[in-house]
Design a protein around this nucleic acid. Structure first.
Lengths: 133, 133
DNA sequence: ACGTCGCTTCGATGGATGTCGAACATCGCA
DNA sequence: TGCGATGTTCGACATCCATCGAAGCGACGT
């Protein structure tokens, strides 16, 4: 048995045509998850623990699961790290313009919120999502 | 005191600039409310009880309240009837293209679900599309 | 080998949510 | 004035949801 990176059940992602609009809207209606999506939109990939959100690891894991099962993100395992990426192309194919428009709407609301995205100084930097609990 | 059509506290609507994206997304993430919005998009105004949804009157009232407080619809009282209308212009002003894009996404998923609601508006309000990797 | 790191799963918890039925208020009509 | 239509509010209820802490598991460094 290969002891490689495949012990746990392979991460389940919905196919592009299976992506449900209500799931997407629901996933996007949470500030923490919106922050994650926004960060992911500025970077091709990122490890789970490096997002500028202020929640417990278990909570973060839950949010990633919601995002993944909604089809918004994909996750890839590498060693003991899990990298997430926005399924921008799939989303664009399934719901043209949706992601851009929603993200633009959020930008308009909280303009210039995601600090340090792309600079690698994300850990510790807080964004606008996370204190509403 | 004129005991005319203003006994109940006037219906509270958020100002255009007060409309919250998360409230809108959450309101739209419910199938019943999505149906209401879709119907309203094809008609300028409609009485509450005339929507093709299959829920109890009290439940419907709840959904209208959610929609109104999210800023998606406005409600006007006339006699003992309450007419609802989509705040399309306000939404467009606040979040350009959002409503059209979300509705188009839903049309794409379940085309022809709402009886009598033919896709009326919705053409080309797309914002800067095309960017994914 | 042992401990640490990264992340998940489990169990619990408090709050929000969708749903209903019953009761209430307003208006129009006979 | 009484009744039916329209729609709301209230109370109840089951479910979902975001959150946390504790425990577990695989990978890696010392």
């Amino acid at each position: 048995m290969p002891r490689s990176t495949r012990r746990r059940p392979a991460l389940a992602h919905p196919a592009t045509e299976e992506i449900d609009l209500f799931d997407v809207l629901h996933a996007l209606s949470d500030p923490t998850r919106m922050t994650i999506v926004r960060v992911l939109r500025a970077e091709p990939e990122r490890a789970c623990g490096t997002f500028p959100v202020d929640v417990a690891p278990s909570t973060l894991s839950h949010h990633f699961k919601v995002l993944r099962e909604s089809g918004l993100i994909s996750q890839r395992e590498e060693a003991n790290r899990r990298f997430s990426a926005l399924r921008a192309a799939d989303l664009e194919h399934r719901f043209p313009g949706l992601l851009d428009t929603v993200l633009a709407a959020h930008d308009r609301t909280a303009s210039g919120a995601v600090s340090g995205v792309g600079s690698g100084a994300g850990a510790g930097a807080r964004v606008e999502g996370g204190e509403e609990g």
